[in-house]
Design a protein around this nucleic acid. Structure first.
Lengths: 225, 225
DNA sequence: GGCCTTGCTGAAGATCAGCTGAAGACCTGA
DNA sequence: TCAGGTCTTCAGCTGATCTTCAGCAAGGCC
């Protein structure tokens, strides 16, 4: 699960980064509101942990702009004060949950997991690319209305590419997203599965939805190929 | 929006009833765990506000039994202590959110609204999938007009799948929803019950409503298979 | 063209997920 | 207490799936 921590206190940010990584999250960090917002909009995170007191753009602003941009990422706000309005305002600007500082790390992890579960269960995401349809919730894929049977790995790769349709995605990123494994795994494994995937969703239809971007990875054509 | 408040402190219960009513909620009150559970299962509430310290049956129990019965009502727990395990446990037993006593009324309202927004008012009592009908309220199931006798576990699984018809549902989620148990229980238990379920609702009719999604769990075909 | 890097793919063996029958524990009502 | 139904655990089985390897193809650069 991918988490973005937006926190300006370096020491706390670092502690969170290490602690959450140890819990199995993939963690990125931003140290101010603007870069946090940019990063959150740029990349596909599951959850954003957002401090309210931030230089540049405060947490409320980041939160409401994220929502305004149509993002449905899970947002957990860290409220510095203990005032009730603080928390109510956090929820009003579109946060999914909040935690008052100082907080217990155990609680943070529990809340993050609960949030991720809620987020994951909403938004039955469906990506339509020309005649190629990828349904993440049902875990099905159809091409020209015909259901295509995919293995778990094949579907996971397709799903990941579909979430970033039109973008080049590196094999390394695919490895990290689809396999829990570190970045030192064999990229050939990805190649083998992509090959199998193409045989199912491209070859029979004479199209190329999964395109090779030499040196950079793969890209799912935004129009289905 | 319909809210059930389960709280044994009469004074607080009354205050909540009046306060929430003033905010536009329709409020019912129960004063102990057992009657709260019965009421929650009987009626269609959007959210249940659940105190942990209750006579008869404590809040955790009420919560997990509600979930075990297949209810997906929103549950907000009121934790008396301030201990972190308290709160983590609340989330583990299936609560959607919690609030530590003493809490601010403003925050409670904000959280209730946020929770209701997330939960939405869905929860169909009857799911029709082709010739397969699952009636959550009556706890009955018919296939092609013929009543099918299911054991409690079988029905609970079918019911949970029916609420997410067309979506892939993991064994882990089924375990959490149907059993009180944590996510470390044996997924084989689910397999055994699904096997039995299929023998009753699929095999005799030569259809496959309950589909296996390898690596991801099960899916109830939106058209009954 | 020659050479190097990157990507593709068929084959094979290893591994894994899921299904199911059986046995015993457990619960419930008479 | 007993009987009947239900639930859980276990182990074996099967077929699907994954990974690894090696050889080949394609692209890019001189």
């Amino acid at each position: 699960m991918r988490v973005l921590v937006v926190e300006d206190e370096r020491r706390l940010a670092l502690a969170l980064q290490h602690g959450l990584a140890a819990e199995g999250f993939t963690v990125d960090v931003a140290h101010d509101g603007l870069s946090g917002l940019a990063q959150a909009m740029d990349q596909a995170y599951d959850v954003v942990v957002l401090d309210i007191m931030l230089p540049g753009l405060n947490g409320y602003r980041v939160c409401s702009r994220l929502r305004a941009s149509g993002s449905d990422v899970g947002i957990l706000m860290l409220t510095a004060k203990d005032g009730e309005w603080d928390e109510a305002e956090a929820l009003d600007t579109g946060a999914d949950d909040y935690l008052s500082k100082p907080f217990s790390f155990v609680v943070l992890v529990a809340r993050l997991k609960a949030l991720a579960r809620r987020i994951g269960s909403r938004a039955p995401r469906r990506t339509v690319l020309g005649d190629l349809v990828v349904d993440s919730a049902a875990r099905t894929c159809t091409r020209g209305g015909v259901a295509v049977a995919l293995t778990p790995r094949e579907f996971a790769i397709l799903d990941h590419l579909a979430r970033r349709a039109g973008e080049a995605v590196s094999k390394r990123e695919i490895l990290e997203a689809v396999w829990d494994s570190g970045p030192d795994s064999d990229p050939n494994t990805v190649e083998v599965h992509v090959s199998a995937l193409r045989r199912k969703i491209d070859t029979p239809y004479g199209r190329a939805a999964v395109q090779t971007v030499r040196g950079a990875g793969y890209r799912l054509a935004a129009d289905g190929g």
